[in-house]
Design a binder for these strands. Structure first.
Length: 421
DNA sequence: TCTGGGGTCCTAGGACCC
DNA sequence: TCTGGGGTCCTAGGACCC
């Protein structure tokens, strides 16, 4: 029996989250900004209609924002994460297998469902009723086609938010009017290269010779071609895969020029990365620290560098990781630059039970003294980060980050829960 | 003045081994 | 004069995603 996939995608997710607690903003144009209030990362329908593009730096469209009375929000990931979890939980009643693909999307296994469109409508109205977030549903025999169906469900209002692409003639009709750039897995670079070969629409790509595509591009794009032809190559991921990499990095609201300031941010990133690592119950072997000036900074010379180090044994101990990061930073730090961004990357993970320790080495894991200390630190910091920290870390949270228009944590902080009069 | 952050996968080329 | 071939592992970089 052939599979059926549904892609459920929240509409303008961050904007929808902000509107949940501000019904007065229902038809008001809204944007949500990236960290540091730098770029626009979510737009309401009204803002999209104004032609403001995703990822635009705020300062470039400041005049339009003011002119059209656009409401501006700093990003509130605590709120979005919590609403996302509620949406995903609601979706579980509609399928035995739900793959959470991103904060605002999930693939559902709808194999064997008799009336998929009715099922999709049911999903929409239930999520709206329970959570208050609008979603669209795309249904098709492959993930790539389900993505395409979802695109159509969003774009064409006559579909009422649900598109079923089970029928191959419908697939062709839609692909014929869809630019190749809209296909999942085709980004800016590939779009250009494909267009140069005369492949302009999704249908052109679907009809391309797959051996040619593999040879000229990659196995990834070859898979896309297969999926556009209804051959499922990408399965539902039934259980989330363990992470392979943890990154903690930020651009700074104000450029940093002092070693001490940069060191403190790097220590903070190291500590957060270690915390994430422990929540994954993994250990890391390799640590990378990078620092750089802004490529847009005309005031001074540019500098970017990174250093990689290997821990003596895989660890998730904040102190070991912080120590290593400071040593790495010292090898790349240079005076007289205006630093705009820094970060810590952990890689080469393993599980504590799989570690082969050197002779005479003391393992740093859950069973040891050090593990107990880390567990205690995590437990104390669990509700509201920053009660306990190690030397070198900045005690104040995000002191370097701009968040001028942050909404309250309506659903996760007692103080911020809305009152009903 | 002001330009995000956190991920994944694949590939080519060099190092190294026998 | 003559200087292999095949395999693996690692890394950096490039592409993509949301």
């Amino acid at each position: 029996m052939t599979s059926t996939f549904a892609l459920v995608d929240c509409n303008n997710f961050y904007v929808s989250c902000e509107r949940l607690f501000r019904p007065d903003l229902k038809n008001v144009p809204i944007v949500v900004l990236s960290n540091n209030d730098g770029c626009i990362v979510a737009r309401s329908q009204e803002v999209k209609a104004l032609g403001i593009k995703m990822g635009t730096p705020l300062f470039k469209v400041k005049n339009e924002i003011v002119k059209h009375g656009v409401e501006v929000f700093s990003s509130n990931y605590t709120l979005y994460g919590d609403i996302s979890a509620r949406v995903m939980q609601t979706l579980e009643q509609f399928s035995p297998h739900v793959e959470v693909y991103s904060i605002d999307e999930a693939f559902l296994d709808l194999s064997g469902i008799n009336r998929p469109v009715a099922h999709g409508q049911n999903i929409r109205s239930t999520v709206m009723q329970h959570i208050g977030v609008p979603v669209c549903v795309g249904i098709a025999p492959t993930k790539t086609l389900a993505k395409l169906a979802n695109f159509a469900a969003k774009k064409f209002t006559a579909t009422q938010g649900v598109v079923d692409l089970t029928d191959s003639q419908r697939q062709k009709n839609l692909m014929n009017i869809t630019p190749v750039s809209e296909i999942w897995g085709v980004g800016r670079k590939l779009t250009k290269k494909l267009q140069a070969l005369g492949i302009e629409t999704a249908l052109h790509l679907a009809q391309a010779d797959r051996r040619f595509v593999r040879q000229r591009f990659s196995v990834v794009l070859e898979r896309t071609v297969c999926e556009l032809n209804g051959e499922s190559c990408l399965d539902l991921e039934k259980s989330p895969q363990p992470r392979q990499q943890i990154v903690c990095s930020r651009s700074f609201g104000d450029k940093l020029t002092q070693y001490g300031d940069l060191k403190q941010t790097v220590c903070e990133f190291a500590a957060r990365a270690a915390e994430k690592l422990r929540s994954e119950r993994q250990l890391a072997l390799v640590v990378n620290v990078f620092i750089r000036t802004s490529p847009f900074d005309k005031a001074g010379p540019h500098y970017a560098n990174a250093a990689t180090g290997t821990l003596p044994v895989p660890s998730s101990d904040t102190r070991q990781i912080v120590d290593m990061c400071v040593r790495l930073l010292n090898t790349i730090w240079q005076e007289d630059y205006r630093y705009a961004k820094a970060g810590v990357i952990l890689t080469d993970f393993c599980f504590p039970e799989d570690v082969q320790f050197e002779l005479f080495e003391q393992p740093v894991g859950a069973a040891t003294h050090e593990g107990a200390l880390m567990r205690a630190v995590d437990a104390i910091n669990h509700k509201g980060r920053g009660k306990v920290w190690f030397g070198g870390q900045r005690p104040r949270k995000d002191w370097y980050m701009k968040q001028a228009n942050l909404s309250p944590a309506y659903t996760t902080q007692w103080d911020n829960i809305p009152l009903v009069k």
